[in-house]
Write a protein that binds this DNA or RNA. Structure first.
Length: 438
RNA sequence: GCCCUGGUGGUGUAGGGGCUAUCAUGCAGGCCUGUCGAGCCUGCGACUCGGGUUCAAAUCCCGGCCAGGGCGCCA
């Protein structure tokens, strides 16, 4: 019943089959996207990673045995078809395959938990439950081709800028930076936590002489948020650079963003078309708005925001309506930024910045405090106990250069390049307040 | 965590005290040699769970669970 692969191998993908290959014998492998059995002729749409090719089986041109085997095939079963290419004005794409040999490699159970042809809408919850099937749809896999290209381009860009990729631990012994809730775990006989950010580690690397480091890795936040732009596990793109300040950090960040967008635009055109997203390459430098100016803009737009507050969702939307693409908000109040952020000459303001895209925060960064005593003072001011940061603080006592850096949320960044509204769409197997499987 | 809305075949929906529970898609069987949202015929398949009100609940009420949207929280 089920055939084995033996030594047959795929010779082409669907997208590679062209009318010029007329009469050539090829082997396609993939899933049965659709079957149209007209009695004396059967049309099978064979779907693989990048496309769909029509296999046309007229009874008169095929052996009765092969014709019967083709007739019995079911949707989403996995097959291998050896056949020859025929040019045809009637076939989608102008080419079809006349089968010579069929292998049924895996039979699909029916009915399917989801429609793969796009005829019947399915909700995201249903789709995520059967994500492996959902991902067979080209308009879903397109998202991950783009995400892959983004991460690839970022690595290439940072390597070309002479950065070193590092890996820091995700199992950590508390010493929270403050703010977010952590996921507690059991580490042998002790309590430990999943890391909320590589912040403290990448700073310690600044005392190591590496000068330029980056990490692309998951971070975990135990916040019970339930929105279209939050998840409990996300990929963070973290950069830290020694002997630089926040101005340099913003420049590297905007260069990296434009480079990633350009790479996606140049290499992912089919995916962008599938998603019907018109990706625009922004110009450098991105606009910079000081926090004070932003507060004024928000209030002028009719949304009340007090000076010294963090942005409410309404404030983000108000500013997002005014600003078109990417922009920085700079000079944040020291009081609402973490202890490790360097104040400006005016101690009430800080060298912190956020990179926004419309109403969405993509990144936050800053020049850091590199003076040990100042850092201890700042910890105390924030109500944190310097003793629990002793291993981190030690890195500031034996020669710590000035440094700056930032972290970008990979999923939010992907949203800006795909036009998606729900962050869950940009993760293969998302983790949110309710979802822990699959 | 708060507010609003919802939960009907595998999927997506209509209905909204008494119906044989609507439609599409799907699935099974049949017809069909150019389909491409194929078409036609026959059939299959559902009211989130618990409690209450009522002669009667899928429908009304309460609670749980789950989901969607908004907000809060969120280096």
């Amino acid at each position: 019943m089920i055939d084995s692969l033996e030594n047959i191998r795929r010779t082409h993908y669907s997208k590679e089959v062209k009318p010029e290959m007329k009469d050539q014998e090829i082997v396609l492998m993939g899933w049965i996207h659709e079957m149209r059995d007209l009695g004396g002729i059967i049309f099978i749409l064979l779907r693989d990673r990048d496309g769909v090719t029509q296999v046309t089986a007229p009874s008169k041109k095929l052996s009765p045995k092969l014709f019967e085997e083709l007739k019995k095939l079911k949707k989403e079963s996995v097959i291998s078809i050896k056949g020859f290419v025929q040019e045809s004005g009637k076939a989608p794409g102008g080419v079809e395959i006349i089968p010579l040999e069929l292998k049924l490699l895996s039979e699909s159970k029916l009915p399917l938990p989801l429609d793969t042809t796009g005829n019947v809408h399915a909700e995201i919850d249903t789709r995520l439950d059967s994500r492996f099937i959902d991902l067979r749809k080209h308009n879903v896999s397109a998202i991950f081709k783009i995400k892959s290209r983004i991460l690839h381009s970022i690595r290439n860009f940072l390597e070309s800028e002479d950065y070193t990729e590092i890996n820091t631990p995700k199992l950590v012994a508390s010493a929270t930076e403050g703010g977010t809730e952590l996921f507690p775990i059991t580490y042998f006989e002790r309590e430990a936590f999943l890391g909320q950010s590589p912040q403290l580690y990448k700073q310690m690397m600044m005392a190591s002489g590496f000068d330029k480091v980056y990490e692309i890795a998951p971070i975990f936040r135990a916040e019970e948020h339930d929105t279209l732009r939050h998840l409990n596990e996300v990929i963070s793109i973290d950069v830290e650079t020694a002997f630089t300040n926040h101005i340099d950090a913003m420049e590297i960040l905007e260069k990296m963003v434009v480079n990633a967008i350009t790479e996606v635009k140049n290499n992912c055109q089919p995916a962008l078309e599938t998603l019907k997203f018109d990706l625009q390459i922004p110009e450098i430098p991105f606009p910079r708005i000081e926090y004070d100016e932003m507060v004024e803009m928000v209030n002028n737009a009719g949304v009340t925001m007090k000076h010294g507050e963090d942005m409410s969702r309404a404030a983000e939307k108000a500013i997002g309506d005014i600003m078109e693409g990417y922009y920085f908000i700079t000079e944040w109040p020291t009081a609402i930024k973490p202890f490790y952020v360097m104040p400006t000459e005016n101690p009430l303001k800080s060298c912190a910045f956020d990179l926004m895209y419309k109403d969405l925060e993509i990144s936050s960064g800053a020049m850091r405090v590199h003076n040990h005593d100042m850092l201890v003072n700042k910890l105390n001011e924030k109500g944190l106990n310097p003793d629990s940061f002793s291993r981190y603080l030690a890195a500031f006592e034996y020669g710590m250069p000035p440094h700056a850096g930032w972290g970008v949320g990979a999923e939010r960044f992907t949203m800006t390049m795909t036009g998606l509204k729900n962050i869950r769409e940009t993760v293969l197997f998302p983790r949110d307040r309710r979802r822990l499987t699959p």
